[in-house]
Simulated assay, not measured.
Amino acid sequence: MYTLLVVDDEPILIRGIRSFVDFDALSINEVLEAANGEEALELFKTHKPDLVLADINMPKMNGLDFASAAKALKPDVKIAMITGYDYFDYAVAALKTGVDDYVLKPVSKNDIQELLQKLIGKVQEAHRQQEVTKLVDGLIQLTDSEEETTGYKYQIQQEINTNIDNIEFSLATLASKLALSTSYVSTLFKQLFGTTFQQYMIAVRLDRAKLLLLSTDMKMYEIAASVGFDDPNYFSAAFKKRFSLSPNQFKEKSRE
């Protein structure tokens, strides 16, 4: 759910937005109002809204100054400017300084609805990118720390990364690669990773599946195969057990 701040010194415009925008369809559950930039900035500091619609030409603090201050407080806020043709050049300049979009007056119901939808799309994309970055950083930490670049732990991790999509990869295969007995590798693995080989492989594969769900449009059976599951139904069941959401539910939620 999102919070929207509307900033304009024309009450009729704010009333119009409140009356004709379908906030429920956009998952906007709170709408704040301000008549000038200074008032808007105080509201912004308190509520940290996700979305902002602001006029450029306002008393006390203009829209561009407000937008700059708001972005400094919350860089990921999505801001669109509402302005007349007389201020078109300012709107273009605003886009170059971090404002996300603009619309020219007079505005229609569709103008505002589409503008908000675009801003929400940018919020969702930013969230997806943050999630992908977190997952990638986690994978890098698993493979690149100094401790893990020496000895068996590093070798095991490298084999796992290489065989993430290999359905046939097993503890016996790993033991053969390391030229050790399967029973010894089983004990060693639990000492190094704090869990069994099978549990660890499932966790790593499902984490990789999350990354693919967030960053690609691959079909579920393609993702399952690419992370070493030969049965898409088993993949979905394992994913839901680990994350309490099915792969499709996770993908849908990431878009919200």
Rank of each mutant, 00 (worst) to 15 (best):
D230M: 04
F23R: 12
A91W: 03
A209N: 06
D22W: 04
S226E: 13
R205F: 05
K118F: 10
D231F: 06
S183R: 13
S236R: 15
Y102I: 02
T46V: 13
L73H: 06
Y154H: 13
E38Y: 00
D50L: 04
T46W: 00
L26K: 09
F20T: 12
D24G: 03
A126T: 15
I14G: 05
F193K: 13
L174N: 07
E30H: 11
Q191V: 11
I14N: 04
F250L: 08
N161Y: 07
A34Y: 05
D9G: 12
S186P: 01
I223W: 07
D137L: 10
T187L: 10
K134I: 05
Q129M: 14
S254T: 14
R128F: 00
I167K: 14
P11S: 06
K96F: 03
K219M: 09
T150A: 07
K60W: 01
T216D: 03
D165Y: 10
S181L: 06
D100F: 07
F88T: 08
L135I: 14
A237W: 03
T150F: 09
A224Y: 08
R128H: 09
Q113D: 07
F239M: 09
S226C: 05
T216V: 09
L73I: 15
P11C: 10
V31S: 08
L104I: 14
V52E: 04
K71V: 05
A34W: 07
